[in-house]
Design a protein around this nucleic acid. Structure first.
Lengths: 333, 333
DNA sequence: CTGAAAGCGCTTACAG
DNA sequence: CTGAAAGCGCTTACAG
């Protein structure tokens, strides 16, 4: 193991001077710096992260908590967060779990393993969130928003995104529509549902509660929901799903029922995950600005770590309707 | 910040005794231990991970290097590895990048940030791999295998898995088949291709090189490959894709060409990722034993960290053909 | 069984 | 501009 002491010996200086060169301190004579730099290369030195962290109290490592969800949106979010963290010279430790196991991340803050946490799938009242708040640990919520919680939060404007879908349906003559929801109480779900209802209202329409099917965020639920909706006396001619995963379930169900999309039924999702644009799905959906969201999340967290008393912000990024083959993408006659 | 010194003060013992209780040392009187345990709860103590790591030289943290691939198989592999690491009380630091950025993981070993690395998408001759070998760093390859490299490697038996597909095709009367490959030189690709060819040979068949289409591991390539294969003078009646992602591309292409699967064309993938069993795909594929592979990977890496001189092992897990609607799953007349 | 002490490898005030 | 030294919070031989 090579230490800064070895480098010092090689350069004929004290260990403190090596440290100063490493810290880019200005108080080093240029020729001394050069000698140290040479020795540094020669011995192949890498600073011991723990010794450094113990002195500085900073680890340059961020924790990410992500539940074991099946929605392919989350791996995409993880990729975007990973890029943003890497751009900010931060490492990421990942907790792929939910419930009490999330507490590992809070413990890691106490143990100085990480400087802060990004929660991606946390719910109101979850133990890890409560602990993080109680410990005044630096954290940010991304994708999920909890109203009234004084902390940094980043999400897309789910309400407006869903509202645009409702208007799109109404303006193309659909007056019997359905909504496939996931778990109530989760912000993405609730905001998209209420945005959709608001959009209908804009167009002078309402929706019956039996036309809104609730369940979990799985492909299987999407399939079952389609069956339920089609069994109504007046089945919908257009269905909005609060995420793309549910929409694929609806498309699967439509195939099973012999329904032709979009001729018999329009389907719109939310998220625009990569596979939505595959020709076999060709799903109209609402695109989130993932990279912007990830960048803002990391920025807010680093600012919070630097100054724990700054005012919390909630950032909303606009999302945009992407029209594809699961709805009629030609202008109405 | 609460330290073991604070706990010691609370329990009226020395800091060393607190440390002994934390280490489950036997040389502590039961009533002393009880006093320390009480104080531990009272002050809400979490050990400083860096101080501990600096003393012990161990971090209980493993690095994972995963390229920014679009194949949903990798998030699933990550989930399995995360579970296996968590079961072994290890944290994971993730590098979602390829090429020179992978070097971050090797540097992290030098800096004692992690105890070892799991490479998931590494290629022969990649800089990070070369560096890890040169540094004698503890690492394991999972999913990818590099022949002749003396290190621990874990993969499924790609050769036999693909061989079974070829036999399945031949035994159901297909005598014009196609293969959609990804990038040559990557073990999953090469082993599955040669296994498939071997299976044909078992049945007295051969395949023309123009019936094998090479490209990258993307949905788009699968689509283009289908078009190429269908343009042949004798188009295949069954196509094997070296992974599910490519198979979805082929299914997309089939839809575009108005081909009926499985009536006009059989399609088989490899990996059995979650979405393969969705009704809208209903893809026959070869299932990998992901959890077993992940468990073995972690086990091998921890053994390697404990003993750097042990003999390297390459572990192969059998995979199994899962027959679904993209091939005729009824017995032939 | 318990305490005092050394030391892991850094960073940074304190002298000079 | 540079060095000697303190100290971050642990673990663990060394005494007793």
């Amino acid at each position: 193991m090579v230490t800064s002491r070895d480098v010092a010996r090689g350069a004929g200086v004290s260990q403190a001077t090596v440290s100063r060169v490493l810290q880019n301190s200005t108080h080093v004579r240029p020729e001394t710096r050069a000698r140290v730099l040479t020795a540094l290369k020669e011995v192949g030195y890498t600073p011991n992260a723990h010794a450094r962290a113990m002195r500085t109290g900073r680890t340059s490592t961020i924790g990410i908590v992500m539940g074991r969800v099946t929605n392919p949106f989350y791996p995409e979010l993880l990729g975007a967060l990973g890029q943003a963290l890497s751009d900010a010279s931060q490492r990421m430790i990942l907790w792929l779990s939910e419930g009490p196991a999330e507490l590992g991340a809070v413990e890691a803050i106490h143990g100085h393993t990480i400087d802060g946490v990004i929660f991606t799938t946390v719910r109101e009242g979850s133990v890890a969130l409560e602990e993080a708040i109680a410990a005044k640990a630096p954290f940010v919520l991304v994708n999920r928003v909890i109203e009234g919680l004084r902390c940094d939060q980043v999400a897309s404007d789910n309400f407006e995104g869903a509202r645009a879908v409702a208007r799109y349906f109404a303006q193309h003559g659909h007056d019997s529509v359905g909504v496939v929801c996931g778990v109530p109480g989760i912000s993405t779900n609730d905001e998209r549902l209420s945005g959709f209802i608001a959009g209908l209202k804009d167009e002078g329409q309402t929706i019956k509660s039996r036309n809104i099917v609730t369940g979990d965020f799985t492909h299987a639920h999407g399939m079952r929901a389609l069956a339920k909706l089609m069994a109504l006396k007046v089945p919908p001619t257009a269905i909005f799903c609060v995420n793309d995963l549910l929409a694929f379930g609806v498309l699967s169900g439509a195939g099973l029922h012999g329904l032709n999309v979009p001729a018999d039924l329009w389907v719109v999702g939310y998220d625009d995950i990569a596979m939505s644009s595959w020709h076999c799905h060709d799903l109209s959906t609402v695109k989130q600005r993932l990279d912007d969201m990830a960048g803002a999340t990391v920025e807010l967290l680093l600012a919070r770590i630097a100054d724990r008393d700054r005012n919390p912000t909630t950032l909303r990024f606009p999302s945009q309707l992407a029209i594809r083959g699961s709805t009629d993408n030609k202008p109405t006659g």
